[in-house]
């Protein structure tokens, strides 16, 4: 449980910092690092990193959207066949989640190859 919290914080903090200058896919290597340092079971680490990536992306999007009073998301929603602003937040969350999840899982599995440690539970 504690590990899960660490992983989420790790991805949230480094993920937020990384975007001063790094490209959007920086979340993938960051999640991979999390997977390396916190070697939970692959399925578990995917889920935790998914939550972290989703939170990272959607919180940032949510804040921008709230400050904008939803002006732009309403328009972009129309552009995407009539989606609502919160649909777009959902898509953003899923995309962030998938990227972080895959990243963390890859980092975790890399550790198996290069270090060979047994997963802690």
């Amino acid at each position: 449980m504690k590990n899960a919290l660490y992983i989420i914080l790790f991805i949230l903090i480094l993920g937020s910092l990384s975007h001063f200058g790094l490209p959007w896919w920086a979340v993938v290597p960051i999640a991979a690092a999390a997977g390396w340092f916190f070697p939970l079971a692959a399925g578990k680490i995917f889920s935790i990193a998914f939550v972290a990536g989703a939170l990272l992306w959607t919180t940032n999007a949510f804040l921008l959207n709230a400050a904008n009073e939803g002006i732009l998301s309403a328009k972009v929603g129309v552009l995407f066949q009539g989606l609502k602003g919160w649909h777009l937040l959902g898509i953003t969350a899923i995309l962030g989640g998938i990227l972080a999840g895959f990243g963390a899982m890859t980092g975790r599995l890399a550790r198996d190859v290069f270090v060979g440690s047994k997963p802690k539970v």
Partner: peptide, 11 residues
């Protein structure tokens, strides 16, 4: 869609 350089930045 990413909130760091995607369309959300234009909000």
């Amino acid at each position: 869609f990413n909130p760091f350089s995607g369309f959300w930045k234009n909000a």
